[in-house]
Amino acid sequence: LTELETIYVTKEHLQETDVVRAVYRVLKNCPSVALKKKAKCLLSKWKA
């Protein structure tokens, strides 16, 4: 997740890969609050 925060991701990348699905899975299933927060921030950033 940290690496995903530092790289530039285009909408095309998100549509062509399962990155969003994987990050969403972390948000829903990971017991770590810190990782959930990171995943939520990434998804919000990409949605904007």
Rank of each mutant, 00 (worst) to 15 (best):
L1F: 11
A34D: 13
K36G: 09
V23Y: 02
R25L: 02
T17E: 06
H13T: 11
C41L: 12
V19H: 04
C30L: 12
T10F: 03
L27F: 01
V26N: 08
S44L: 09
L14H: 15
K37Y: 03
N29S: 08
Y24R: 15
A39S: 01
E5R: 01
A22T: 10
S32T: 11
Y24W: 15
V23G: 02
K11P: 08
L4I: 08
R21T: 05
I7R: 11
I7N: 12
K45M: 03
V9L: 07
L14E: 15
A34W: 08
L27R: 01
E3D: 07
T6V: 02
A34L: 06
N29Y: 04
C30H: 02
T17N: 13
E12V: 02
A22Y: 10
V20D: 07
K11M: 07
L1Q: 14
K47D: 01
L14Y: 09
E3Y: 07
K28V: 09
V19G: 09
C41F: 11
W46Q: 01
S32F: 14
R21E: 02
C30M: 12
A34T: 08
R21G: 10
D18K: 09
L43M: 09
V23M: 10
K28L: 07
T17A: 05
N29R: 13
L42S: 01
V23Q: 00
R25F: 01
A48Q: 11
E3S: 08
L35F: 06
L27Q: 02
V26A: 13
S32P: 12
C41D: 08
K11R: 06
P31Q: 11
W46E: 00
L42K: 00
Q15D: 06
T6M: 09
L43E: 00
V26I: 09
L4F: 10
D18P: 08
L27Y: 05
L42T: 02
Y24V: 13
L4S: 14
C41W: 11
K45Y: 09
R25S: 07
R21W: 03
K28C: 09
K37D: 02
T2N: 12
L43R: 00
K37I: 06
C41H: 14
L1T: 14
L42M: 08
E16K: 08
L4T: 15
P31Y: 11
E12N: 06
H13V: 02
K45H: 04
D18Q: 10
H13Q: 10
E12A: 04
P31L: 15
C41P: 00
C41Y: 03
C30G: 11
R21N: 09
T2C: 04
Q15S: 07
K47P: 06
T2V: 01
V9G: 12
E16N: 08
K47L: 04
L4C: 04
L1M: 14
C30S: 04
C30T: 03
K11A: 13
T10N: 03
C30Q: 08
N29G: 06
T10R: 10
L27M: 06
L1K: 05
N29Q: 07
V33I: 09
L43F: 12
K45A: 03
S44I: 02
K47N: 03
N29D: 08
V20L: 13
L27C: 00
K47R: 05
Y8C: 04
W46M: 09
L27H: 00
K38E: 00
V33S: 12
V19S: 04
T2P: 03
V19R: 12
K37P: 00
W46I: 14
K37W: 02
T17Q: 02
T6K: 10
L1S: 04
V20P: 08
V9E: 15
K11N: 03
V33P: 13
R25Q: 10
T17Y: 01
S44M: 08
T6E: 13
I7F: 06
L4R: 13
T6I: 00
D18H: 12
E16W: 05
Y24K: 14
E5I: 04
V20S: 03
K28E: 02
V26P: 09
K47T: 05
Q15A: 10
S32W: 14
V23F: 11
C41T: 10
E12R: 07
A22H: 06
W46N: 01
A39R: 00
L4V: 07
K37L: 04
E16G: 11
K36Y: 12
Q15Y: 03
D18W: 14
P31W: 15
T10L: 02
V33L: 14
E16I: 06
V19E: 03
I7T: 14
V19K: 05
T2Q: 08
Y8F: 06
A22M: 10
K36W: 13
D18C: 09
E12D: 08
I7A: 13
V33C: 12
K38P: 02
A22Q: 10
L1W: 03
E3A: 11
A39T: 04
K11C: 06
V19P: 07
V9I: 08
E16A: 11
L27G: 01
N29V: 08
S32I: 15
H13L: 01
H13Y: 04
E12G: 03
T6W: 08
W46A: 13
Q15E: 11
V19D: 02
E3L: 10
A22I: 05
V20W: 12
E5V: 04
T2R: 11
A39F: 14
W46H: 02
A39N: 03
V9S: 12
L42F: 08
L14D: 14
K38G: 07
A34H: 10
R21P: 04
R21I: 00
Y8M: 05
N29M: 12
K28T: 08
L43S: 00
E5W: 01
H13W: 06
E12P: 07
A22F: 06
I7E: 15
V19Y: 03
K11L: 11
A48G: 01
V33G: 11
K28N: 04
I7P: 12
H13A: 08
Q15G: 08
Y8V: 11
Y8E: 15
K11Q: 08
C41E: 11
S44V: 04
E3T: 04
P31N: 11
V19F: 05
W46C: 06
L43T: 00
Y24D: 07
K47V: 11
K45G: 00
E5Y: 03
C41S: 12
Y24M: 15
Y24S: 10
Q15K: 14
C30E: 00
V20M: 13
L1G: 15
E16C: 10
V23T: 09
S44T: 03
E12H: 03
V19W: 11
C30Y: 02
K36I: 08
L4W: 03
V26Q: 08
T17M: 14
K38Y: 07
Y24E: 05
T2L: 05
